[in-house]
Design a protein around this nucleic acid. Sequence first.
DNA 1: CGTCAGATTGAGCAGCTTCAACGTATGTGG
DNA 2: CCACATACGTTGAAGCTGCTCAATCTGACG
Lengths: 281, 281
Amino acid sequence: MSEYVLRKLELYLQLSAPERRALAEALGHQVIIPAREDIVSEGDRPTHSAVILEGLACRYKTLADGRRQITSFGISGDWMDLHSYFLGDMDHSLAAICISRVALVHHTVLRKLIDDNPRLGQLLWRETMVDGAIGREWVVSLGARDAHSRLAYLLCELHARMKVLGIGDGSGLQLPLNQTDFADAIGVSTVHINRMFQQLRSEGLAEYGRGQIVVHDWEALARAARFDPTYLHLPEQIRALPPGDGQPPAGAQLCSSPQSTSIRIRPSRTGVESVAKEGAR
Amino acid sequence: MSEYVLRKLELYLQLSAPERRALAEALGHQVIIPAREDIVSEGDRPTHSAVILEGLACRYKTLADGRRQITSFGISGDWMDLHSYFLGDMDHSLAAICISRVALVHHTVLRKLIDDNPRLGQLLWRETMVDGAIGREWVVSLGARDAHSRLAYLLCELHARMKVLGIGDGSGLQLPLNQTDFADAIGVSTVHINRMFQQLRSEGLAEYGRGQIVVHDWEALARAARFDPTYLHLPEQIRALPPGDGQPPAGAQLCSSPQSTSIRIRPSRTGVESVAKEGAR
DNA sequence: CGTCAGATTGAGCAGCTTCAACGTATGTGG
DNA sequence: CCACATACGTTGAAGCTGCTCAATCTGACG
């Protein structure tokens, strides 16, 4: 079940059998995180780094007055938390948006993985770089684009990132985000994000529904957002793929609509350790 | 003259003599970039990575309508452009704010440096991580703080980063940024940034002058900005240092006021190669 | 002394916020 | 099966933050 991770890394470099083995082994320790629960919280000093295997997560910071700013989203295959290995203290929190399967790689395991497999290390470093590039694009959005473009741009980004890994069925965007999540990412009020979705709908560009955003014409949306995917640094040949290509790896669909889970969600910030663990693959 | 680079890396790890030698050698190829000139431009496919030895630089993106969003500042000792090694295409530009001395490390040299000195590689990866953390804080600023806090926060960040390396004389902030630069970083109009500086002055927090921002009470400014330096991931013992500590390495003061250079500035996007090169240290 | 980049000021306006209310699914316990 | 609770989406109105436009001021420099 580390399929997406492998697929993402192999977009750029074919891994050897031993490398794959080492990777799969490192990702062996897996947990299920309920929707809306922190994976790691600001101020923690984690001993593990988190990798999203299936689901959706976000990074966020909480301000003094309680407001939340989401700084990025993580989809299946994303190494969300390489920071803690290098930096120790968490300067932000990591939370699951919907119920998600997450691999927790102990820092000693990570160290060994990198030391023994320098190519893998370079690939992960590369991921870090792309992460930074995405962050920069968010800075541009928040600093220079209005709410309408910001929203359209974000939809395009998530679509591009998911498409390249074959996540979702291609018809629209399977995103278990509610409007508050969007508002906190885009940096506007929920009232305003609602109006922006209404505008997108009236323009025929996108329709918001719980758990799914329907987009008939991605080209048109990208044009409206002036979306330029260069910053995602996807491989050339993939960038031209028709929307919705690629088969998802066999496996359960962990989330389809917001909080589509029987697990009760508490606003508590329970750490990873309290979550029931599952065995390795 | 790679003093600041060394100092910055050694905040976290004492380097061995061979490591220092390898580093100094890698930084041997140096150029002087005139104020307001691009070091690398969006769309380029550089063969070298840039390291700021002395001076001030920024990363920025230009929007379709010509507006510029600055996404980060680079000070002496910053590896601004490790991206190009991993990602190839530049998704943003890199420019000198004032006349700056920059080392250009050829990618093959960089590769050898990392391969031969794994600890150096890890340190640089760490730098990348901090870069990302700073980017995240900018996202928070732009998404959730008002212009006043954003400006105060930025001043605190630059001060903290410079102080830890002993850049500047400690009395204020030696920053050759004009108000347009601040506006483009903060994501507001020049008119508004001007009013924010007026407000900071009327509050007795900071006074803008060309090339120098005078701050009498950094504590007060940090309080006003609710500045929390955790995200800079500075070493513990340094974080508590009194302001203005540390002696700058011997060497010329390359910039003190905006465009303090006899070299004429053109808005052209001249690439690195056109700039007169200087010999190694 | 003229020129130019950059700082400053005022006035009117747009984007977005806040507050407050109401609508609508979905779930839950009696 | 109904009454109620909860979470989320939607709507209107008033107000503030920050924008645009446009003019003026200032200091540095040739």
